[in-house]
């Protein structure tokens, strides 16, 4: 436990130390310039949209995998893990090829007037791709363990299918959904490799926050890079803390009933 804590905490404290070399004004200038602010909006906003989408899509995928039997189900089940296994740069290059104006999907989208690659939309699409397995893999085992008796009891008491879902199934899988959401969100926020190729990286428009860190490093501005990283870390930590406490509160409320 102690060793594990060291492995995680030492790099994080090194990060804070690096940015501690800055004065307050320098820190503000590095971490909150308009261009960096635009990158936070894209990174946090994109990660949020992608995670919300993934909660819905991931639940449907997990549901279908658990409740239905169909040809190649095992294969589809295995395919879900692909974004985990794929090197991120490979995913990025593949997604860009797909969504670029000349790519299969890009061409189709362009014909209805939507530009995907090299826009914020492309960033969100990449974030969805890498985040989906987190939701599927956290929800799937919980769905599997749900006992049929609960649903049967609900039906015998006169609940319709929608009531069974909202009053019986959803409360049981909600913690898993929230965990999946948090994981997908965190992954999308920190993602570099698979997003950077499709982003287009236009200043103020499609630059993600991790790219701003790389840009600072490229100028040997270690302190400035750490300042941005610190802001991201604190913001991400705050969001995860809120999610976790909401979950705690939800659980105690359930237990108290």
């Amino acid at each position: 436990m102690f060793a594990a804590a060291l492995i995680v905490l030492v790099p994080i404290s090194a990060l804070f130390l690096r940015s501690a070399g800055l004065t307050w004004d320098q820190f503000i200038a590095a971490a909150f310039s308009p261009r960096v602010m635009a990158s936070y909006r894209l990174s946090f906003g994109g990660a949020l949209i992608a995670a919300v989408f993934n909660v819905i899509a991931g639940l449907i995928v997990a549901w279908v995998l658990v409740r239905y039997d169909f040809p190649f189900r095992k294969l589809v089940d295995a395919l879900v893990d692909l974004p985990f296994a794929l090197p991120t740069a490979v995913a990025g290059v593949a997604l860009t090829a797909l969504y670029a104006p000349k790519g299969v999907l890009g061409k189709a989208l362009l014909s209805i007037g939507i530009k995907a690659a090299f826009t914020p939309l492309g960033v969100v699409l990449a974030m969805i791709f890498i985040g989906l397995p987190f939701v599927v893999r956290t929800v799937q085992p919980v769905l599997q363990d749900l006992e049929d008796e609960h649903e049967e009891a609900a039906v015998s008491l006169g609940a319709d299918r929608w009531q069974v879902f909202t009053y019986v199934i959803l409360p049981s899988i909600l913690p898993a959904l929230v965990t999946g959401f948090a994981l997908a969100f965190a992954r999308a926020l920190g993602e570099y490799g698979s997003v950077i190729f499709i982003a287009g990286n236009m200043p103020g428009v499609s630059e993600i926050a991790p790219l701003m860190i790389v840009t600072k490093l490229e100028q040997y501005d270690y302190a400035g890079a750490s300042a941005i990283a610190t802001v991201m870390l604190v913001a991400a930590f705050a969001m995860l803390l809120v999610i976790n406490s909401a979950q705690k509160w939800h659980q105690t409320r359930l237990a108290g009933r």
Partner: peptide, 15 residues
């Protein structure tokens, strides 16, 4: 604006 020269070449040649 690709982040590196190789990315730019890929954008031009393959994309």
């Amino acid at each position: 604006l690709d982040s590196g020269a190789r990315g730019a070449t890929t954008s031009f040649v393959q994309r």
